[in-house]
């Protein structure tokens, strides 16, 4: 990240940088929204994760537009053509998939009489890992190493992935026959787990209305975002969006409340709180703010903690568990704004 920076940090004032970052976000949002109808909330969360340098797990049914979402994100990126890294790749996970199918493998080259590394599909900016729970734990772990470390290791040789590496993994919540469910430490790698609901009637109707015209081309006329702009946006947001001490306190209080809830077996990790901070900042900027407000916490907390906490058997609604811990924290924050 230090090597990046087409726009020098020092040369712009904060408001200007934030304004530019906001413009980048707006562009991405607009492009994606033009392609995906009726999924504004999911688009927001996915973009937040992209900007916050996290990954998302979509829990969804087939045919609900997740590939389209991922591809439109990839299309939004203006990629240097000669580079080895593609803007978007999709990996369909199957039980017989091997790690090398994902990471790539060393191939014997007759010319130079040596092994050279042929990068796998994971070498892309945006990777759609479809039905990630259908493949063996071996492949899952290779995938997850890439997600956590932004690198792959083949034949004891470590190959760096790009700085802009974003995974959208999906799994079908109902079709669980012959699957390898992700254990909680692996789930922890995902910033958000997003449960997608079926879209509204009007949105669905609009999808059908656009039938003859492939929806993916709809955003073609809109401007794209370069990789450098996106990485710059990340830094600007990280430095420019203010997080008040009270917000940090509220996060810690929330995590503690979740851990002490008797319905919760395993509470939220400290790492999840750390990961949540850039997400909160990104969300704040998407809302046009240069500070994180309690509303951001309320919006993101269910998606950050939903897949990280484990509840006692019999608890049906995890969101309610989280909301119960969240309410007092938000109440304190709200009171704080008046009492200061």
């Amino acid at each position: 990240m230090d090597t990046q920076g087409t726009i020098p940090t020092g040369s712009i004032g904060k408001p200007a940088g934030l304004a530019e970052a906001q413009k980048t976000l707006t562009t991405l949002t607009a492009r994606t929204r033009a392609v995906i109808v009726g999924r504004d909330d999911v688009i927001e969360l996915v973009l937040i994760a992209l900007v916050a340098d996290g990954h998302v797990l979509l829990e969804d049914y087939p045919g609900s537009g997740k590939t389209t979402l991922a591809r439109s994100l990839g299309d939004s990126l203006r990629v240097v053509a000669s580079g080895p890294i593609a803007a978007f790749r999709r990996i369909q996970f199957t039980p017989d998939l091997l790690p090398s199918d994902v990471t790539g493998s060393s191939v014997f080259e007759l010319d130079g009489n040596r092994f050279t590394f042929r990068p796998g599909p994971i070498f892309a900016h945006i990777v759609l890992a479809d039905e990630i729970n259908r493949t063996s734990p071996k492949v899952q772990s290779a995938m997850l190493e890439a997600m956590a470390e932004k690198q792959v290791t083949v034949d004891n040789e470590t190959h760096k992935l790009d700085e802009l590496f974003f995974v959208i993994a999906t799994q079908n919540p109902l079709d669980v026959m012959g699957t390898y469910p992700l254990p909680s430490p692996q789930l922890d790698r995902f910033l958000f787990k997003i449960e997608m609901k079926h879209i509204a009637r009007d949105a669905e109707l609009e999808v059908l209305t656009h039938y003859p015209k492939p929806s993916l081309q709809m955003g073609d006329t809109m401007p794209k975002v370069s990789r450098e702009e996106l990485i710059h946006t990340r830094r600007v947001i990280r430095e420019g969006v203010h997080i008040a001490p009270a917000i940090r306190e509220a996060l810690v209080d929330l995590a503690r409340a979740l851990r002490s809830d008797e319905r919760v077996l395993q509470g939220a990790s400290t790492r999840s709180l750390v990961l949540m901070l850039p997400a909160l900042q990104a969300r704040a900027l998407m809302q046009g703010r240069d500070y994180v407000s309690p509303d951001d916490i309320e919006r993101l907390a269910p998606h950050v903690f939903g897949h990280r906490i484990e509840c006692t058997p019999g608890v049906v609604d995890k969101n309610e568990v989280i909301a119960a811990s969240l309410r007092p924290c938000l109440e304190r924050l709200s009171k704080l704004s008046l009492s200061r």
Binding site: S293, D295, L326, R327, L330, S334, S337
Partner: peptide, 10 residues
Amino acid sequence: HRGFGETREA
């Protein structure tokens, strides 16, 4: 009036 746990924005 604001409900308990409702954010000011909400």
